[in-house]
Design a protein around this nucleic acid. Structure first.
Length: 284
DNA sequence: CCTATTTGACCCGG
DNA sequence: CCGGGTCAAATAGG
């Protein structure tokens, strides 16, 4: 007999909420620990991996609870496959499997992707030039290029794609892919303010995971964060996604990217910068 | 009126 | 042929 069957819907929801809270606490802990950990250190990497594993376990637990004790689905999930729900696994592995799917990318060099729970400001001003429904991802994908692309010929572009949510609809993940380096100077920076994450991290939830195309930093399915993004923070405390619909979240992304007035609400990476701009997300 | 965004069409690689 | 990336005309908003 499945013990889960004795749970009613509300019981599951309580547990889900607890796990969600646990994730938030873990994120806060991560924000506290990361700045004091030495970089280029094996133990630091191990710690990051463990944190990622814990988050991953939480996500899986939530997914299982979302299935509400359906033993068949649960068994399939445990085996890593779900009948009639193939797209969910495909979405989950979208970034890994897309290598063969991506076509006609002009500058596939200097790519970098960031997965964030919230819209975040990367410090650059972007102009949207496309918006397309991606069938495999079951969400729209937005295409942006640097606002200085015309004036300064900056070729930097980015792609914002909502990923599958955590299952209970309250956690929306966005995968932000960057292509090409910024060659623009100054004007493209949407926000001149930089919050010192070394001192402001107490109340923020750090980003979960990142990915870069460097061969030495292959994507880790366990969510191990690239050390170059250790201090990339997202919106503090509360989750915007708790209040917004998909479209509103999309809009929030756009507004955030272009609204300097929101500066005090967002934190930026203070490590990942390039020569051209103090806020350039590139650093290599 | 100018600028930014939206959106359908087109292009291209697999 | 299909899916994904980009273009550019139409539209919205200041």
């Amino acid at each position: 007999m499945n013990i889960l069957k004795s749970f009613v819907h509300d019981d599951f929801q309580v547990v889900i909420n607890m796990i969600e809270h646990q994730k938030v606490l873990l994120a806060e802990l991560r924000g506290i620990v990361l700045p004091i950990l030495p970089t280029d250190n094996g133990q630091t990497k191990l710690a990051l991996q463990l944190l990622g594993d814990i988050l991953n376990c939480s996500d899986k637990a939530i997914s299982m609870l979302e299935l509400g004790g359906n033993t068949d689905k649960l068994a399939n999930l445990a085996r890593g496959k779900r009948k009639g729900d193939k797209h969910i696994m495909e979405n989950h592995n979208l970034e890994e499997t897309k290598q063969s799917g991506i076509k006609r990318r002009k500058n596939t060099q200097d790519t970098c992707s960031i997965v964030t729970q919230e819209p975040y400001n990367d410090g650059h001003q972007w102009r949207k030039y496309g918006h397309k429904w991606i069938s495999r991802a079951k969400h729209y994908r937005s295409y942006y290029r640097c606002a200085n692309s015309k004036v300064q010929g900056c070729l930097a572009t980015k792609r914002v794609q909502q990923m599958e949510d955590s299952g209970n609809g309250t956690l929306k993940l966005f995968n932000v892919n960057y292509y090409g380096q910024h060659i623009c100077k100054g004007d493209g920076i949407a926000n001149p303010y930089v919050v010192d994450t070394q001192h402001e991290h107490q109340n923020v939830a750090p980003i979960n995971r990142t990915q870069c195309n460097s061969p030495t930093f292959a994507y880790d399915s366990n969510g191990v964060q690239d050390e170059r993004f250790e201090n990339l923070f997202v919106m503090p405390n509360m989750s915007v996604s708790e209040y917004l619909t998909d479209l509103e979240m999309e809009r929030a992304f756009e507004v955030t990217m272009n609204s300097p007035s929101d500066s005090e609400h967002w934190m930026f990476d203070n490590l990942i910068r390039c020569d051209q701009s103090p806020l350039c997300i590139w650093g290599w």
